[in-house]
């Protein structure tokens, strides 16, 4: 997928620049883009390291487990056919809690184990099970308490209030999750 997008962008831009006679500005765009992306990474580095460090403290103190326990009633409702003490349930709650805290690196392995367990329990072969679809929707709606990357970028580009967006982020991800879950549950019932 990315191969085509990347290839198409470069091809289209080059043709467009040649036709409209903007070769010089295209050259500047290429060279500027390369150095710009690296300065972007360095401006983000400090904040990303700081936040990851703080979240590691929370993680070692058992914050993820605590959050998992708080979330378990809601998760039990969503995965009502799963045995409540199953391994799958435990992995799902760890994955969701880690995502909430913005610990993407920690969330992915839990998520992989969760989907594997769901596959074992439902015996669905190579077809996605109902629970897997619900799980993937929860992951793609990405409810995050603190979107570090966006906040850091906003700061880097001189925002007066980099984190003023937090309430809007929460509202829109909760709505996205709700709609995604409703559609997943409806289609689960139909098929």
């Amino acid at each position: 997928m990315m191969n085509y997008i990347f290839g198409a962008i470069i091809l289209i831009s080059t043709i467009c620049a040649v036709v409209t006679g903007r070769g010089e500005s295209l050259a500047k765009g290429i060279i500027g883009g390369a150095s710009e992306s690296v300065s972007l990474l360095t401006t983000m580095a400090g904040m990303m390291m700081l936040w990851s460090g703080i979240m590691e403290i929370a993680e070692r103190g058992g914050f993820t487990r605590l959050l998992g326990r708080l979330l378990s009633p809601a998760l039990r409702l969503l995965f009502n056919k799963l045995p409540k003490d199953s391994e799958a349930m435990r992995y799902i709650s760890m994955n969701v809690s880690a995502n909430l805290l913005g610990l993407g690196n920690a969330a992915t392995p839990f998520g992989i184990s969760a989907v594997r367990e769901l596959g074992r329990l439902s015996d669905c072969g190579d077809r996605a099970s109902d629970d897997m679809i619900v799980f993937v929707v929860i992951n793609t709606a990405s409810i995050q308490i603190m979107p570090t990357m966006v906040g850091t970028l906003r700061q880097a580009y001189g925002s007066a209030q980099p984190f003023s967006i937090l309430p809007c982020v929460w509202i829109s991800s909760v709505c996205a999750l709700a709609v995604g879950l409703i559609i997943a549950k409806l289609l689960n019932r139909v098929s």
Binding site: I10, S13, R22, L26, K28, G29, G33, A34, L40
Partner: peptide
């Protein structure tokens, strides 16, 4: 970032 810059500059 380079690809997006190219889209804009062209």
């Amino acid at each position: 970032v380079v690809a997006v810059n190219m889209l804009k500059a062209s």
